[in-house]
């Protein structure tokens, strides 16, 4: 494993007029590392995710990404074409609502295959075989390959969205509340699946969640945000078992015990 990070974020801030979206966020992310960003609604975690994934341009600060060829590139200086290419090859983005990340009116197979076709694969048989493989990896029956996601349950749609993102072997995946809006049992299954895929593929991931249990299960590192700022960061189990910041202590103490 290389000793260089994959992503370097330095003093990233986003202001909406005088309102703070996120302020002065700095961290490095290494290959294979899963970073959870936790905080309540309005804490700035989604703004941060959108800035990092270049869906939103920050007001100040830099983020550099190490490309597959080892070159460091500043994300906000890349052309839109380069960023979009990165987005559909080396990156993934898993939306909370699968309908935002899927094409609901084309088949599951085509949803998975789209990225392959986007990077120039022109062999139907190979694209379909890859789609079959990925559907099985996310536990969707092969005989659903020609069904549209409209006919899928929420959990299946989310798994399909994951397959669609991972098919090009990305190195960095952004996830925005990937288990939000799902039943608890469906959540558990999805988390297992994600955990396994992240480990098997050596993915780096930035997972935004308000659910500390999700953070504990998926991530090694964690950042706690409040009012746009990072109030505490560190190893996930350290932050959760020995929270230091007042806000983190409040968050951890607010977890319902079952």
């Amino acid at each position: 494993m290389t000793d260089e990070p994959l992503l370097r974020v330095s003093a990233l801030s986003k202001f909406y007029g005088s309102r703070v979206g996120c302020e002065n966020v700095t961290f490095d992310l290494w290959p294979g590392e899963v970073l959870a960003v936790v905080g309540e609604s309005g804490s700035g975690k989604t703004t941060l995710l959108n800035c990092l994934s270049t869906r939103l341009l920050p007001s100040s600060g830099t983020a550099s990404y190490r490309m597959r060829d080892g070159q460091w590139r500043e994300l906000y200086r890349m052309s839109e074409a380069e960023r979009r290419f990165l987005m559909r090859t080396d990156w993934g983005f898993v939306h909370q609502n699968p309908a935002d990340g899927l094409r609901m009116t084309v088949s599951a197979g085509a949803n998975v295959g789209e990225r392959l076709m986007a990077v120039g694969d022109r062999h139907y048989g190979r694209i379909r075989a890859t789609a079959v493989d990925w559907l099985s990896r996310v536990e969707i029956d092969e005989d659903r390959i020609d069904d549209e996601p409209r006919a899928f349950s929420g959990g299946m749609r989310q798994r399909l969205q994951i397959a669609r993102n991972l098919v090009t072997g990305p190195r960095l995946v952004f996830m925005d509340e990937p288990t939000g809006g799902l039943d608890v049992s469906v959540q558990a299954r999805l988390l297992d699946l994600l955990r396994g895929l992240v480990t098997d593929l050596g993915l780096a991931a930035i997972v935004v969640t308000h659910d500390l249990a999700v953070a504990r299960l998926l991530s090694q590192r964690m950042m706690v945000m409040k009012d746009g700022r990072v109030v505490e960061s560190g190893l996930t189990d350290r932050v959760l078992d020995d929270p230091r910041a007042p806000y983190t202590q409040l968050l951890v103490s607010s977890i319902l015990q079952v």
Binding site: G234, L235, D237, R238, D241, D242, R244
Partner: peptide, 9 residues
């Protein structure tokens, strides 16, 4: 023990 494992700060 937990400090030695990095689990406690």
């Amino acid at each position: 023990l937990k400090m030695l494992y990095g689990n406690y700060a």
